[in-house]
Amino acid sequence: MSTSYRATPATPDSRRGDLILFMAIAFVVSWASWFTAVGLGGSATSAPTAAPYLFGAFGPLIGALVIRVRRARRGEPAPEHAVPFRRKSLLWAPLMLVVASATVLSAALLAHAAGGPALSLDVAKDAVEDVGGPAAFLVGMVISGPLSEEPGWRGTAYPRMRASMGRFQVGLVLGVIWAVWHLPLFFIDGTVQNELGLATPSGVLFAVSTIPMAMLTAYAYERAGVLASIAVHFATNTTMVLLDVKEPVTQSLIIGIQGIVAVLLLATARPASKPAATALPTADGNPAPRADHTVRV
């Protein structure tokens, strides 16, 4: 006897349930790890604090993997606004990397022209040497932040939130959630957030900066998927570390420039296309629609 294996369409309840579960996993895994690091004391770059500190960054990725498995077991197609991996991603990712890095570099140059700190190659060299050289630096910058977060925030949360919100609304809401998720890092010695300080202008600006970043990575995601959003995240973080961006004036300019660029890009972007349909056989031999399962989350 032949049996049908028609894909089950996603419902608002299942999308909402996935989103809530993802947020719960992301926050529980990350905050439990980071507050363990706080309790252990010491620096984030030395044992035993380093282990829970590093593991905490993977909360969003773990949440994304859980939701991906859960969706597959239900036989549901990918969310409407999920972006499958395509070859054009290999072209868009480097382009978005340049755009994101340029927003930070231009802000640093403007800040210097206004009397702020000068750009220094020595600072960049020290940042690279402190972690063991160029290879270790690049690997660390890719894994810590871009790779550990983007499959979750953009690849999982974003398309489910877009089902009921506009681009700018998702950027605002997800940006605020992203800022709150980072809060424990302010209490771990050796982190960038701890150096900035929570109750300082720099700390507040760091929190605010997650909103334009959420919008810029969202644009990259809608254009070419998670790979492009990883490129934006990586370029922004890396350029800020190499330029040692900590001054409130420079931070403010980065927020302003990224905000303008993100708004212009999102305002002119075409809506994300729906997943392509394919056919699956059913019990009566007729084809049944199925969404493109090349989407990863």
Rank of each mutant, 00 (worst) to 15 (best):
S229M: 13
L105E: 00
A127E: 06
V245N: 04
F234W: 08
E195H: 10
V131W: 12
G155P: 13
Y219P: 04
R154D: 08
W178E: 07
P94H: 06
A235F: 11
S148M: 14
T49W: 05
G42S: 01
V142Q: 09
K246I: 10
A118P: 06
H81A: 14
L196K: 05
V208S: 02
T36L: 08
P84H: 01
T210P: 05
S14A: 05
A72K: 12
L91H: 11
M23R: 09
A231V: 10
Y221E: 06
V241W: 00
W153L: 15
A127C: 13
V28E: 03
L90W: 13
A78E: 06
V208M: 02
P289Y: 04
S202T: 00
G115A: 06
R154Y: 08
K274V: 14
A107K: 05
V28A: 05
S229F: 07
V99S: 04
T217L: 05
S30Y: 01
K88V: 12
T156H: 07
L227W: 01
P146F: 04
D284C: 05
R160L: 03
L243V: 03
H233D: 08
S101N: 08
R70M: 07
V142L: 12
S252W: 00
M240K: 11
A218H: 01
A93C: 12
L264Q: 12
A82W: 06
A51H: 09
A136W: 10
K246P: 06
R86T: 08
A100P: 05
R87V: 09
R296V: 13
